[in-house]
Simulated scan of single mutants.
Amino acid sequence: MSCMQTIADYGLRSLGYGERLLPRGDFTLCQHFTLIGSGLIWNLYFGIIALALGFFFATALAVAKASGPKWLRKPAEWFIFVFRGSPLFIQFFIAYEALVRLPKAGITLGGLLIPTDWTTSAWAGAALVLFLNTSAYAAEIFYGALRAVPKGDLEAADAYGMAGWTKFRRVAWPTMLRLAWPAYTNEAIFLFHATTLVFFSGFPAFQQRGDALYYAKFFADKTFNPFIPYPIAAFYFILLTLALIGLFGVINRRLNRHLPGARPKLRVRPQIVR
């Protein structure tokens, strides 16, 4: 079997497309790269969903923690404390045990039957845990940046007649993002790395449609050689990290585009005569 045929058969296997049966013998390097890369789709899914939704929830938590009313501040503080204070690995197991205890027939609310069997699937339950976890960490980052917003900027906004949502949207929030973005970039990288823990959690992989670590372990168990599949999985995550650094770097330059001397272009001027 050629490598192109292997890619066609197993490239989207983690999504349920292509060959159903896993290779049984004579494992090639192309099969390693193809199947582990196919599983990486699920890691991307978990990371993107948690990061996209967690960004907005973290912003709300940071604003709530920095606000004056105790009824709004205390729940945000306890949420951040609980999810930052407990290991992510334990959060996976607690969430799975809690979701699996929901009535299998569903929950009836107002005469409407809401199914609950889908909550124990990895695509829903594991994504929920990662979303809550990254929201807590990002909220603490945003909270620190929100407290570091220069008072002069806020006073200038007051002088212009800004208040409430307008003041936050045009002054406080952009400044908060500029201050928090380097630390938030690290949180995004850690989040995508943390998606590998889904494999060890209680959330099952439906019909062997696992993530990158699922297929890496499959090859390691079959060949008794972990020094090929696991470095390949690490190689994929290194590429993913480089992509994240590049993407978040572009956003960082966009956020700081108005600052003088922010990220000047590299100019190569060879010195011919000294």
Rank of each mutant, 00 (worst) to 15 (best):
W42P: 01
L21C: 10
P23S: 03
L22I: 11
L51K: 10
G25I: 05
Y45C: 01
T34I: 06
L40I: 04
L51A: 15
F46G: 07
L22S: 12
G25S: 15
L29R: 11
W42I: 06
G37R: 04
D26C: 08
G39T: 04
G47T: 00
N43P: 03
C30M: 07
L21Y: 13
L29M: 14
R24N: 15
N43A: 07
A50I: 09
R24K: 15
F46C: 00
G25A: 14
L22A: 14
Y45E: 09
L51F: 15
G25M: 06
L44T: 00
A50T: 03
L22M: 15
A50F: 01
A50P: 01
L21D: 15
H32V: 11
C30I: 09
L44C: 14
G39C: 05
I49R: 02
L21S: 14
I36C: 01
G47R: 00
I48C: 07
H32P: 06
L51E: 14
G39S: 05
H32A: 06
L29A: 12
G39D: 01
L51P: 06
N43G: 02
P23A: 10
L29E: 12
F27L: 15
R24D: 15
L44I: 13
F46M: 07
I48G: 03
I41V: 02
P23H: 05
F46E: 02
P23I: 00
L35T: 05
I49A: 12
L44F: 14
L51Q: 15
L51W: 13
Q31V: 04
T34M: 04
L40K: 00
I36S: 08
L44S: 10
I49L: 11
L44A: 13
T28P: 08
L40Y: 07
G25F: 12
T34K: 00
A50V: 06
G47I: 04
S38T: 08
L21A: 14
I48Y: 07
T28I: 13
L44Q: 08
W42Q: 08
P23N: 10
C30F: 04
R24L: 15
L21Q: 13
L22G: 10
Y45I: 09
L29K: 04
I41D: 04
I48D: 02
Q31K: 01
D26A: 07
I48A: 04
A50G: 12
G37L: 07
G47L: 02
L51I: 15
A50E: 11
D26P: 00
S38W: 06
Q31S: 06
F27Q: 12
